[in-house]
Simulated scan of single mutants.
Amino acid sequence: MPARAATLADAPAIARIYNEGIADRIATFETRERTADDLRERLSSPQAAQHPAVVIVEAGEVLAFAWSAPYSAREVYAGIGDHGVYVARAARGQGHGAAALRALMEAAKAAGLHKLTSRILTENTPSRRLHVHCGFREVGIHQRHAQLDGLWRDVVTVEVLL
């Protein structure tokens, strides 16, 4: 599946896909929907050069994206990216997530990162399977890591060395 770097023109599609993930309440602790302007700001931020964003496009439509952000502001963690991968509801289960995640891994390595990490809600079995399939290892579970809709949720930390 063709992957490419995300552009500012992709912001509306990325916002739509991300907002589906927010609404599903299984992919992120975020609850506030994002606008295209929010995503343009993220894609054009100074950190975007070292922390890439990629999209999977089919027939001119963005179906999935993956992105990286700094793991921490502390200098000692400069080579680690905290990442996310999201697939449009209508395109899930068709390999777009794996394509996006693999493309992000390549782009992150090319940008000088040596590791990607993330926290996945423990009940998000498709994401956990995807990450293991792409070479990530599950490091451990953080119990009661954060609240979502007033309920404590557990997450599993994943990582891959690039």
Rank of each mutant, 00 (worst) to 15 (best):
L104V: 12
I26C: 13
V62E: 05
E106L: 11
L162K: 00
E20I: 00
W67A: 08
G60P: 08
N19E: 14
V62G: 00
T125V: 14
A27P: 03
A88Q: 12
R34E: 07
A69E: 08
I56G: 00
R32Y: 12
C134K: 12
G97M: 10
G79Y: 02
F29Y: 10
R40L: 05
R74D: 03
I120R: 02
R137K: 12
K115I: 01
R153M: 13
P52W: 15
E123A: 12
D37N: 01
T28N: 04
E75Q: 04
V76S: 05
R92S: 05
Y86R: 05
R74A: 11
E106T: 14
A66F: 04
L39E: 14
A78Q: 05
E138T: 07
F136V: 13
W152K: 04
R128D: 03
V160G: 04
L101R: 05
G79P: 00
A99K: 01
I141S: 00
L162I: 08
I80W: 08
V160F: 08
G93M: 15
N124C: 10
G97K: 02
A110V: 05
A48R: 15
P46R: 02
L121I: 14
A99F: 15
I80Q: 03
F29C: 07
V132F: 14
R42G: 06
R34Q: 11
S68I: 03
L121N: 01
P70C: 03
E106M: 12
G79S: 02
R34L: 07
A108L: 12
A5V: 07
S72L: 14
R92Y: 11
R102F: 12
E41Y: 03
V155W: 12
V57H: 00
I22E: 13
P52Q: 13
G81N: 10
P126K: 13
Q47N: 00
H145C: 09
K115E: 05
I80Y: 03
I80D: 03
A66L: 14
P70V: 03
A78I: 00
E20C: 02
E30W: 15
L148E: 06
M1P: 06
I80R: 01
A6E: 09
R102M: 15
E41D: 09
S68C: 04
G84F: 15
A6S: 09
E123P: 00
W67K: 02
H142Q: 08
V156Y: 13
A3V: 13
L104F: 13
M1I: 04
E61S: 01
S45N: 05
T125E: 14
P46C: 03
R153L: 13
E33A: 10
A3T: 15
V160D: 04
G112N: 06
F65L: 11
Y18M: 04
A146D: 11
A107G: 11
P2Y: 03
E20L: 11
I17W: 10
L101V: 07
A66M: 09
A108V: 06
V160H: 10
R102Y: 07
E159G: 02
P2G: 01
R40K: 12
L116C: 04
V55S: 05
L121T: 00
V155E: 12
G95M: 08
S72W: 07
F136P: 05
R102H: 10
A73K: 04
R92H: 13
L116Q: 02
F65G: 02
V76F: 08
R32T: 15
A88K: 04
A66V: 11
A15P: 10
A108G: 06
P46L: 09
A111I: 06
I14W: 09
E41G: 09
Y18E: 11
S44K: 02
V139L: 06
R40D: 11
D82Q: 08
